[in-house]
Write a protein that binds this DNA or RNA. Structure first.
Lengths: 165, 165
DNA sequence: GAGCGGCGTTAACAAAAGATAATTAACGCG
DNA sequence: CGCGTTAATTATCTTTTGTTAACGCCGCTC
């Protein structure tokens, strides 16, 4: 159970935590040398959240994960899952499914960077997950799209001009 | 076995083919309405190549996959793998490992789009996989990085100015 | 209700990238 | 050897984005 602003996973940490998000929204971000924050990932209800640095790469997390909303998590220890799988191989399929699902999402996001302009990327985002507009501030969305908040504001204006209400 | 230029998987196709690349290089690309080609993915020796549209999303591939070099493939039918797993669950781990590995690579690539400038992205690419410079034309690399060939040429020039050999 | 901080917008300028076209170099082929 | 093709570079111009700073708005706190 997290309140808005609570940190789930801190940069530099290295522990095999993993959780299913029952309700709420987690944001993963990175802070560069100049102190600028960049949103790297958003994870919401019915998704899995974990530090992939820790779990996939066996290294300390380069990102901090914190809640943007009141968030309910079902937390499990990844090492326990591994052990569980030794005895109950039937869970293997579920684990595989989750990873496959996340891979599919990741590949779609890569495509959006390669094939679309920032403006198209924004339009796709609000089409795919319109509630994010209400739930996440523009500056977080902007960096998630790989642009600056100022640029996102201009894009919004351009779009408004094209589709007058 | 593929010769340079040979197509492994055609856009619109939908079959559960999957192959381990023993040697060589496969490029996946997309052609937009204006006839412009964009490189979406490169896969090389010791990696797995498959149409993720077909395998992950159960839909026709939006991309064409073709060999850039003489390429040796060990091809398997994905449906056969699924059946094999029914009887030999010990392969499950291997399959999971491959997907996890590809997920890790995908997440790294997403990061590079969110956190790096095109120039930094290019520098990272030639650092991580320098032989690609010899093996893949600049225009293919450019679109892989999400920029145009003209822009990549300018980036190269900028870099040369900064590090006069 | 005055002060404060964060956010989105806007402005002004600089830097980078896109679009298009011309030039050059390299290569294969008849 | 000349021809055609393609890739990379360069030039020019336009568009977009980044950067920095200012402004107004809103919610919060004291």
């Amino acid at each position: 159970m997290l309140e808005p602003g609570d940190i789930y996973f801190r940069e530099g940490e290295s522990s095999p935590r993993l959780a299913y998000i029952k309700e709420g929204l987690i944001r993963s971000y990175h802070v560069n040398e100049k102190g600028m924050e960049t949103t790297v990932l958003l994870r919401w209800e019915e998704q899995i959240v974990a530090s992939y640095d820790s779990i996939l790469m066996q290294r300390p997390s380069r990102f901090t994960y914190h809640a943007l909303e009141k968030t309910t998590l079902l937390e499990v220890n990844y090492d326990l899952i591994q052990q569980l799988l030794e005895t109950k191989p039937e869970f293997e399929k579920a684990r595989y499914h989750f990873v496959l699902d996340m891979l599919a999402q990741s590949l779609e996001r890569i495509e959006s960077f390669v094939l679309l302009t920032p403006e198209e990327r924004y339009l796709q985002l609000i089409k795919d997950k319109p509630d994010l507009l209400q739930r996440v501030s523009d500056k977080h969305l902007a960096t998630l799209l790989g642009i600056t908040p100022v640029s996102l504001s201009r894009i919004r204006k351009r779009i408004a001009g094209k589709h007058p209400r």
